[in-house]
Amino acid sequence: MKQLVLLGLVFAVIGLAPFVISSEFTLNLVIMVLYAALLGQAWNILGGYGGQFSFGHAAYFGTGAYTVAVLQVQLGINPWLGLVAGGVMAMLVAAFIGFATFRYGLRGSYFALVTLAFAEVLRILSNSVPFTGAGVGILIPLDQSAANFQFASKQGFFWVIWVMTLAAFATVWWIGKSRFGAQLMAVRDNEDAARALGVEAFKVKMGAIMLSGLFSGLAGVFYAQYFLYLDPYIAYGPAISIESLLVPIVGGLGTLFGPLLGAIGLHLISEATRELIGDLPGISLVIYGIVLVIMVLFMPRGLAGLVRRLWPKPAPAKAQATEGGHA
């Protein structure tokens, strides 16, 4: 309950941004932080709570993005409908990949490699079929109106990403409080023990990958409408997969607020490097790599773990006192 109040407060404060920030540049930064938090939270559902490390979340992101773009450009379908279709398509792709991997009990690095492979297959496919614009990419024609999911000001986009991200965070809050979440974490921590207690590990993992795919797909839809251009490398390339997993790992795996902390931290770092080093191509990936190594070595619980260490939960006093008696 306390977490829900905190979640409400945090999003209320973030919601003040369009009222107090007048600079488009700064508002864009807030939008990109929310977008990164959405990507990260999507990955966190499967990776952080489910323990299934995917290296191919671009598969869902790209599917969401391409769905809304192709429906618009090739069939003239309204992007708000495309938003729904993009989410659903991403979820279906996730269901397919989940079925193909979990059915055969792939875990750990095998699961990671297969998801990476699926994303690459989709990248190559989208590079060769005509309706995605192949290697040239697909350009969504500029036609600014709210009915068309293209806003003249950044504020409109802000509210869309705010709602999407809030939905993802609220879902994860629910996961932390539900039977589904308890079973998902049990599968993460010990699949055999969970199954012995009657947890249907396959179903639980399918649920997690589909939720995860849904929110990644929504992030993809948002990206397509915000930047109005996609190509196979943007949509299905490894950069998105890496960002998806880096955000929650830096922020704190399997925690509600980890992805938000991670998104803020990573954006601060990338802005700082841009200031210091300039726009050297690839430099942000180098910095990300270094950050990842440092986090894994020194802060395996991420920024959320650091926050916990600085302000520890008041431990129930009787819990420790009695352990000695049984030792």
Binding site: M185, D189, A193
Partner: peptide, 16 residues
């Protein structure tokens, strides 16, 4: 023994 490490005793038993 196969505890769900990182979860409390209460959470472990609740899975059952």
């Amino acid at each position: 023994v196969q505890p769900f490490a990182g979860q409390t005793v209460r959470e472990n038993i609740a899975v059952g």
